[in-house]
Design a protein around this nucleic acid. Structure first.
Length: 420
DNA sequence: TCTGGGGTCCTAGGACCC
DNA sequence: TCTGGGGTCCTAGGACCC
């Protein structure tokens, strides 16, 4: 049997751990740039606010721009996202789960698959829920079934039944479940299936495999088999090393000048390079993209990207940022207001395996390597941003909005919770 | 005024090889 | 008259997930 644990309204729950006054109140957490709702407390879900709703729409009202604001009328508590906090609490939740079995696959920031072979499912599921809540403050739901896809559905059930569901006989549940709720069936595939009269998970489970192969490809066939209890997706205990690593952001205000665009790209490139070093990976190429705001079609639109090969696989900020800035100069067109930009590092490989370059300056490589180690350790010890790159600018007026971020209670000495 | 970010996998088509 | 078959690699686009 496989369990899927999934935290309830995870980001909202993280905020409540350090601010119990939020309990029972409507709470939302916003995406980057304070743009969209990405986590909702049950109270907010009950108000009919959809996942992904832009904040400005919530500030209008449920009925349109003229009505009373959902935020004000219901005293909704609004938070900017605080990934330092959520990431750390996620790590703690996973650590607790790891005490029940070594068979843990961390699937996302708030979900894990667990192999329960040889364990008493019902008992373990309840115990896990209790321990995670007691030791981290985070409420989780646990679904158990014979395959990952069915465990997802069991978890969906658990959320409506007090937190635990062991799915022995899936069929009655599948009959009630819209096909769009099945893991792996998104918006487009739902349309394709519905056109064939396949509207419930049970229809999908019983569909003809040849038809599914044609309609949804090999991935869809796996989904159908998984619904039938044939495991096609193994538990992945060791995360596969990343193949790409990107950093992109929308700007806090429109950016028109090349100088500011280059600051942003330098900043994102430096962040991406630091991630690479943390993972002990190196990149062989990179891509830079810039774009105007597609939500303002009446304004002139421009979006473009450039992919560049690096002279040798590297994770050094100087090489990466220099290459990214060169691309930015070639991509830039005056006369537009830019809204978003990003740097993606591609063709990643293991940094421990280093292919020397025929014309590579080994002395410089070693010196730059030592510089990176120094910068990383200072930032690790004293907090991100302690040492920054001048190319990223000092004032950074383009920086994303983050007006309502709570403290980083668990990862910054100067932001510890205060008890009066 | 205000509309997220970071990933993965699969497929089809083109270029190229023998 | 008649123009193969089998394979790899790369890329872009489309789909999905949280």
């Amino acid at each position: 049997m496989i369990a899927l644990t999934d935290a309830n309204n995870f980001y909202v729950s993280c905020e409540r751990v350090f601010n119990p006054r939020l309990e029972g109140k409507p709470v939302v957490v916003l995406s980057n740039n304070d743009a969209c709702v990405v986590a909702r407390s049950n109270e907010v879900k009950a108000l009919g606010v959809k996942m992904g709703t832009p904040l400005f729409e919530m500030r209008w009202s449920a009925t349109g721009p003229e009505g009373p604001s959902l935020v004000h009328e219901h005293q909704t508590q609004v938070f900017s996202s605080n990934y330092a906090l959520y990431g750390d609490l996620s790590r703690r939740v996973m650590e607790v789960l790891g005490q029940f079995t070594p068979e843990v696959e961390v699937y996302s920031i708030d979900e894990a698959f667990l192999g329960l072979a040889g364990l008493s499912c019902e008992m373990v599921a309840h115990h896990m829920r209790l321990m995670v809540k007691q030791w981290t403050g985070i409420p989780v739901s646990v679904g158990v079934a014979t395959t990952k896809t069915l465990a997802k559905i069991a978890n969906h059930q658990a959320k409506q039944q007090g937190g635990v569901c062991v799915l022995q006989e899936p069929e009655p549940v599948l009959a009630q479940l819209p096909v769009s709720e099945v893991w792996g069936i998104g918006r487009r595939l739902t349309q394709r299936l519905e056109a064939q009269g396949i509207t419930t998970a049970l229809h999908l489970q019983q569909a003809d495999l040849a038809l599914i192969r044609q309609l949804l490809g090999i991935v869809g066939v796996r989904t159908v088999l998984e619904l039938r209890g044939v495991a096609c997706l193994p538990l992945e205990r060791c995360p596969q090393p990343r193949k790409s690593c990107g950093v992109s952001r929308g700007f806090g205000r429109p950016v028109a000048s090349l100088a500011e665009l280059k600051q942003a790209i330098a900043s994102y490139g430096a962040t991406a390079a630091a991630k690479l070093r943390r993972d002990h990976r190196v990149a062989q190429s990179l891509q830079v993209f810039i774009t105007t705001n597609r939500f303002h079609p009446q304004k002139p639109q421009y979006a473009n990207s450039e992919t560049i090969g690096l002279p040798y696989p590297t994770h050094d900020t100087l090489t990466i940022v220099r290459a990214a800035l060169g691309a930015t100069e070639r991509l830039y067109r005056p006369g537009y207001t830019y809204h978003k930009a990003g740097v993606m590092l591609l063709d990643l490989s293991d940094g421990a395996i280093c292919q020397g370059g025929l014309f590579r300056d080994e002395t410089r490589r070693e010196r730059v390597g030592r510089l990176m180690v120094a910068v990383d350790s200072l930032n690790r010890r004293f907090g991100d941003g302690t040492v920054r790159w001048a190319a990223a600018g000092l004032r950074q007026e383009w920086k994303m909005r983050s007006e309502w971020r709570s403290s980083r209670f668990t990862t910054r000495w100067d932001e510890l919770v205060v008890v009066r």
